[in-house]
C-alpha cells in the first residue's frame, strides 16, 4: 500500500528525517513512537504534502504511484488522511458545510457523483451517532470553540465520512482525558478493516492500549531505530527512550 524508502527531508536547510524505510500493507496498523523532536510530525506532514519541507532523498510509493509528486488534495483523493495533532479552526464555516465540501471534492476527483444534501445528511448522521457527537457540533464552525476532546472526535468523524485507505493519526491522544480517549479510540477501531491501513504516531504507550498496533517502530534522531510487535510499546513505557540515546526528563 505505502512504501517509504530512504526518505530524507529538511526544514530550512536542517535535516529532520535522515533515511526512513517503512512498508505498510493493507489492513495493518503501525505505530511510530518517539520522543519530542524525533521527526514524528515531520513525517506525517511530508506524507500529507505540506509546503515547507524539502525532500532531499528517497521515495514514497502509494498504491504504486509517486506520492511525493502529488498535490495535497490529490493525496486526499487517493485515500490518504491525516488526523491533525492540532485541528485547525475555520471561523464562519459550518462543520457540515466543510465535511460536505471535502467529501464532494474527493468524490469529484475520483469521478464519482457528488452527494446531494439529503444523501449527505443521512451519511453524516449515521457517523456522528457512533462518536456520540451532537447535531449541534455539526452546526458549529469548524473546530471553533471546540474542547480538545471535541476537536479529536471531529477529526475522527471526518475520517469516518471520508473513508480513507490510509490514515495517519498524529498525536491523537494529546490533550485527551481517558474518557475522551476511549471514545476516539472506539471510533478509530470501528474503522479498522482489511483494506484500511493506519499509521499511529504517539509519544506515549497509553493510546496503544486502546488502538492496538500490529507493528511498533521507534523513531529517534530522524531514523527508525528499532521495529517490533506491540510488546515493544510496553518495553518503551517501562524503560523510556534512554536506550536510544535520548535523555528525557521524566
Amino acid at each position: 500500500m505505502i512504501e517509504i524508502k530512504n526518505l530524507h527531508a529538511s526544514v530550512d536547510g536542517k535535516e529532520i528525517l535522515k533515511g526512513i524505510d517503512l512498508t505498510i500493507r493493507p489492513g495493518e496498523v503501525h505505530a511510530i513512537m518517539g520522543p519530542n523532536g524525533s521527526g514524528k510530525s515531520t513525517l506525517s506532514y511530508v506524507l500529507a504534502g505540506r509546503d515547507g519541507y524539502e525532500i532531499t532523498e528517497g521515495s514514497v510509493s502509494f498504491f504504486g504511484k509517486d506520492l511525493l509528486a502529488m498535490e495535497p488534495e490529490e493525496r486526499a483523493a487517493a485515500g490518504l488522511f491525516l488526523a491533525f495533532q492540532y485541528p485547525v479552526e475555520i471561523p464562519g464555516v459550518a462543520n457540515t458545510t466543510f465535511l460536505k465540501s471535502a467529501l464532494n471534492a474527493i468524490r469529484k476527483q475520483r469521478g464519482e457523483p457528488e452527494l446531494d444534501a439529503m444523501q449527505f445528511l443521512k451519511l453524516v448522521r449515521e457517523k456522528t451517532k457512533a462518536l456520540s457527537m451532537t447535531d449541534e457540533m455539526l452546526k458549529r464552525a469548524v473546530n471553533v470553540g471546540f474542547s480538545g476532546g471535541e476537536k479529536k472526535r471531529n477529526e475522527t468523524l471526518q475520517m469516518a465520512v471520508l473513508q480513507p485507505k490510509f490514515a495517519i493519526l498524529d498525536e491523537t491522544d494529546s490533550g485527551l482525558d481517558i474518557d475522551a480517549l476511549k471514545i476516539v479510540a472506539e471510533g478509530v477501531n470501528a474503522l479498522r478493516s482489511p483494506e484500511r491501513s493506519m499509521l499511529v504516531i504517539t509519544h506515549y504507550q497509553r493510546l496503544l492500549d486502546y488502538i492496538v498496533p500490529d507493528h511498533v517502530h521507534v523513531l529517534a534522531f530522524g531514523k527508525i531505530q528499532r521495529s517490533g510487535g506491540k510488546e515493544l510499546a510496553l518495553e518503551l513505557e517501562k524503560n523510556g527512550y534512554a536506550e536510544f540515546g535520548v535523555n528525557e526528563a521524566a
Binding site: 505540506r50 485547525v88 458545510t97 465540501s101 464552525a141
Partner: peptide
C-alpha cells in the same frame, strides 16, 4: 497556511479552500 493545508488535506483545491474560508469570513 494552516487553514489552507487543512482544507487541502481534506481534498479541497487551493481555490476552493480560499473560497470556503472567505465565505466563512463573510458569513
Amino acid at each position: 497556511e494552516d487553514q489552507l493545508f487543512y482544507c487541502r488535506q481534506r481534498g479541497l483545491s487551493e481555490e476552493d479552500a480560499v473560497s470556503l474560508i472567505v465565505n466563512g469570513f463573510c458569513k
